[in-house]
Design a binder for these strands. Structure first.
Length: 228
DNA sequence: ACGTGATCATTT
DNA sequence: AAATGATCACGT
């Protein structure tokens, strides 16, 4: 973990262009910096993961298995506020997953993802070219007891409704810090879900997201509050 | 189809 | 301007 944080300190203040060039020098495949992210939405995150030694696959679970650390970029606007919510993981919707047994927060994919996150702030103001965006000081976050209680309350609320077959009634307004939103290639995409009385229905794939207000608070807590 | 990485674009 | 609902790329 110390080595990881040291690596992050080396990255802090560098532009994405410089970081991409550095990877190319290390014998990695060349990584052209896109003009904009419209057709390269995950580009920044994948770049930083490669840079920090995370495997380039897409398996579930932490990026750095040995350390149990999840890497997440945090795009900031000029006012050093997060520009976007943060995607966490897919929402389990199918009958077998939802009714497999008691719902245990600590067993959930959400908790597994969020138990230890390396947040990497990135300049991402709307007019700023991707190549010129600079990486900020990364910080390691583990949920405090209070934060975990809040996350758990939201998660249990969502899972309860899914279990009751109310998934199609859930909107992004639900959940104090953890919300559920569509997560798909397009709006017509469907997956297996749970309807009334454990029936099988077709519904839109969804993901869990952390509200920007929550990650803004994490930034605040890390950079301005005392931290052990 | 489902998982990863996210940001876009329209509505509120 | 912020938030919600929709969308893009790629690997398995």
């Amino acid at each position: 973990v110390e080595a990881l944080l040291t690596r992050c300190r080396q990255l802090a203040g560098r532009s994405l262009e410089a970081i991409a060039a550095g990877l190319a020098e290390d014998g990695e495949p060349k990584e052209p910096v896109p003009e904009d992210l419209r057709r390269h939405k995950g580009w920044t995150g994948r770049l930083l993961e490669r840079c920090l030694g995370a495997p380039a696959d897409n398996r579930a679970g932490p990026d750095l298995v040995e350390l149990g650390v999840e890497i997440k970029t945090l795009p900031l606007n000029d006012g050093e506020r997060p520009r976007e919510s943060t995607y966490v993981t897919r929402v389990p919707l199918n009958v077998s997953a939802i009714h497999a047994g008691p719902l245990d927060w600590r067993e959930s994919t959400v908790y597994q993802k969020l138990r230890c996150v390396l947040w990497i702030p990135i300049q991402a103001a709307p007019g700023l070219p991707v190549a010129q965006r600079k990486v900020g000081q990364a910080f390691l976050w583990r949920p405090s007891e209070e934060e975990e209680r809040t996350l758990r309350r939201d998660w249990e609320g969502h899972l309860h409704r899914i279990r009751e077959g109310e998934v199609d009634a859930i909107t992004a307004r639900d959940g104090q810090v953890l919300q559920i939103r569509p997560k798909a290639a397009h709006g017509r995409q469907r997956t297996w879900g749970t309807g009334d009385h454990e029936s099988v229905i077709l519904t839109q794939p969804r993901g869990f997201y952390l509200r920007a207000a929550f990650t803004a608070y994490l930034l605040q807590r890390y950079f301005f509050d005392a931290e052990p």
